[in-house]
């Protein structure tokens, strides 16, 4: 398995973590009325969306570097 493939696998797991953490932090922030946790939740969800776009772009652009 090449670094290219491993990186795509890593980005998939990082994306899943971002969405998981985003939901967890939002729920915790709402339950505890914590602005910090709500902020972390929103940043994590946005990071997840950015990672999806990054992963797709990386896969398309890196094809010729096998």
């Amino acid at each position: 398995m090449s670094l290219r493939t491993v990186h795509i696998v890593f980005i998939v797991f990082a994306t899943m973590l971002s969405f998981l953490l985003g939901l967890w932090a939002l729920m915790r922030g709402i339950a505890d009325a914590s602005g910090l946790m709500i902020g972390i939740g929103l940043i994590a969800l946005i990071s997840g969306i950015i990672l999806v776009f990054y992963g797709v772009t990386f896969r398309r652009k890196i094809k010729h570097l096998a």
């Binding site: 670094l3 290219r4 990186h7 890593f10 980005i11 990082a14 973590l17 953490l21 932090a25 910090l36 946790m37 972390i40 940043i43 994590a44 990071s47 990672l51 990054y54 990386f58 890196i62 570097l65």
Partner: peptide
């Protein structure tokens, strides 16, 4: 401390991106 661990998570994700970019730069 979840906020600090979150920062560290972002740091490591960013470092994996720069690492693969370093390799891709050599390929180019």
């Amino acid at each position: 401390n979840v906020p600090l661990a979150f920062v560290n998570t972002m740091i490591l994700i960013a470092s994996s991106v720069t690492m693969v970019m370093a390799w891709a730069s050599l390929k180019m």
